[in-house]
């Protein structure tokens, strides 16, 4: 069933040699995560390359990683916070929206980078073999550096509002903070899942290039970035949670702002959907992978 079965995948020694069988494959392939693990250094180098190259020859450099979410936050604060008076769970609106913009930025960045990654790395794909999964995975991981930089700004903002005279905001360190890495992981799972689907589809259908900006824009509306999820009527909550980013964003707010109760049901649905997207994405990717070099 698999394209190439590694007969003995242990490190090749002189006694035990590695035999590859190459033959036409049909149907679904195994994920072969073992081989992917073998190539972990390649994933590391590709991630490192993406990060290193990203802001080369830009005047502001890595400041862009901060400016993008920060300026979006400013615009949201003016229009949603001040003008539309969107409620913000008793937290200053800038902090409220910026907390959501962190995972959201990671997600959209990963989506557009991963979606285009295979086509952008066409030269590699047609000239050398390595597990193709390494490319979209590296694109998604590359966003973590931007995330970390933007996160520092969040801490700064929290400090500011905490100590600003007349502010009734106080940094809330709750046990929920310990769950933050899990929500980060969930956002990576979601981004990788969707990214895998889009990248594999993009090899065959370049329409994805045009669909991508639209998807992210549309997705922003159905994610509680500019508004709280509590605005969605109760009976629609579970349907709303089918968007895994809803669970991620609510989780981030819960862990960092500690204002509301844990987003239990939403989170359960979102997590399930995120894992479903990732697993189907992995299998779809592996299935399409065998023709990448011919069609990209």
């Amino acid at each position: 069933m698999t394209q190439t079965s590694l007969q003995s995948s242990t490190a090749p020694s002189h006694q035990q040699e590695m035999v590859l069988f190459l033959h036409p494959s049909r149907g679904w392939s195994s994920l072969n995560l073992k081989e992917l693990w073998h190539f972990r250094e390649l994933i590391y180098f590709l991630t490192w390359r993406d990060v290193k190259v990203r802001y080369k020859q830009t005047a502001l450099g890595a400041a862009w990683a901060i400016l993008q979410p920060f300026l979006t936050m400013v615009v949201f604060t003016i229009f949603f916070g001040r003008l539309a008076k969107v409620p913000s769970d008793n937290v200053p609106y800038p902090i409220f929206s910026y907390t959501a913009l962190l995972p959201w930025g990671l997600f959209t960045k990963a989506l557009s980078d991963a979606g285009r990654s295979l086509v952008a790395n066409r030269a590699m794909i047609t000239k050398i073999y390595f597990p193709r999964l390494a490319i979209p995975i590296a694109s998604v991981l590359g966003g973590l550096v931007d995330f970390a930089l933007a996160f520092v700004v969040l801490i700064g903002m929290m400090m500011y509002y905490n100590f600003a005279p007349g502010s009734d905001y106080h940094i809330a360190v709750t046990p929920a903070l310990a769950t933050l890495p899990l929500f980060l992981l969930l956002s990576i799972i979601t981004a990788l899942g969707v990214g895998l689907w889009l990248s594999a589809l993009n090899v065959l259908y370049r329409d994805i290039n045009y669909v991508l900006p639209f998807i992210t824009q549309f997705w922003l509306f159905i994610t509680p970035v500019a508004y709280p999820a509590s605005m969605v009527p109760g009976r629609w909550q579970l349907l709303y949670a089918l968007n895994p980013m809803a669970g991620v964003v609510e989780g981030f707010r819960w862990a960092l702002l500690g204002a509301q109760s844990a987003p239990g049901p939403i989170l359960a649905v979102s997590t399930t959907i995120a894992i479903l997207i990732l697993v189907t994405g992995l299998f779809y990717f592996r299935r399409m992978e065998r023709t990448f070099a011919d069609t990209v």
Binding site: Q3, T4, P12, E17, M18, V19, L20, F21, L22, H23, P24, S25, N121, A123, M124, I125, T126, K127, I128, Y129, R290, T291, A293, D294
Partner: peptide
């Protein structure tokens, strides 16, 4: 070198393959 798979038949490769279809890939 496993870049693409055959449409029919099979190949058996014993050992680690290094392929050099181009220099400076990547």
């Amino acid at each position: 070198s496993r870049i693409t798979e055959p449409s029919e038949g099979y190949a058996e490769v014993h050992g680690r393959v290094g392929s050099l279809l181009e220099v400076g890939t990547g």
